[in-house]
């Protein structure tokens, strides 16, 4: 029989620390496999002022509305404190939950009216386990590289990535997260403009 399932509720700060260590540990081989260049070389190549273009919109990516599904662990998170989703919710195959507890078991394609009712958007889900897109713990440079990397971003080229960031309905939910939830901290127009500026400059990544 089962014994140890202590789902640990740790502070966000300690998660960041753990996540950072974890991300460093596994991001190296991934980065090495994907580019002829070593991680150091990538960092060196991106070490330009253009990195600021990414930094200009990264607070949106780092906001709990995005991070709660791009976080460490095989489960979604909730709230501005990023606590693990109650009810032992799991990522599952394809990122749509497991067996009788799919995301769509509770989440609709739209937000429900009323505080604490399940939020929703079309195709509500987590990144799949094969490509979990975990951002938590990454530096800006790592985050930038990871979202650009087709092996980590579901095979999107930069144009498709920009479209995803600026038009995808699930991403757009971050600006309209429903009653009682903090929206992402930048107007959508401004965010889209900044993403496109970054795209126009060749999607440069910060040095670190």
């Amino acid at each position: 029989m089962k014994r140890v399932y202590a789902v640990v509720r740790v502070s966000l700060a300690s998660l960041m620390v753990l996540g950072f260590a974890g991300a460093l540990w596994f991001s190296r081989p991934v980065a090495a496999a994907e580019q002829p260049a070593s991680p150091n070389k990538i960092a060196a190549a991106a070490a330009s002022d253009d990195g600021d273009l990414f930094a200009a919109f990264v607070p949106v990516l780092r906001h709990p509305r995005c991070m709660n599904c791009h976080s460490q662990g095989d489960f979604p998170r909730q709230g501005d404190d990023g606590h693990p989703h109650t009810m032992n919710i799991r990522r599952g195959l394809g990122g749509f939950g497991v067996t009788s507890v799919k995301c769509s078991t509770c989440h609709q394609d739209h937000n429900l009216g009323g505080a604490h009712l399940p939020p929703g958007a079309p195709s509500w889900h987590l990144p799949p386990p094969s490509m979990p897109m975990i951002w938590q713990g990454l530096t800006d440079a790592q985050l930038c590289e990871s979202i650009k990397d087709p092996k980590q971003n579901r095979n999107r080229n930069i144009d498709q990535l920009v479209e995803h960031l600026t038009e995808d309905k699930l991403v757009m939910w971050g600006w309209n997260p429903g009653e009682g939830r903090t929206p992402v901290p930048m107007p959508h127009d401004e965010f889209a403009a900044k993403v496109k500026q970054w795209q126009a400059a060749g999607a440069p990544c910060p040095a670190r």
Partner: peptide, 11 residues
């Protein structure tokens, strides 16, 4: 019981 990071788990 066990206690992990302040969370009590009754086994």
């Amino acid at each position: 019981v066990s206690v992990t990071d302040g969370n009590v788990r009754v086994h």
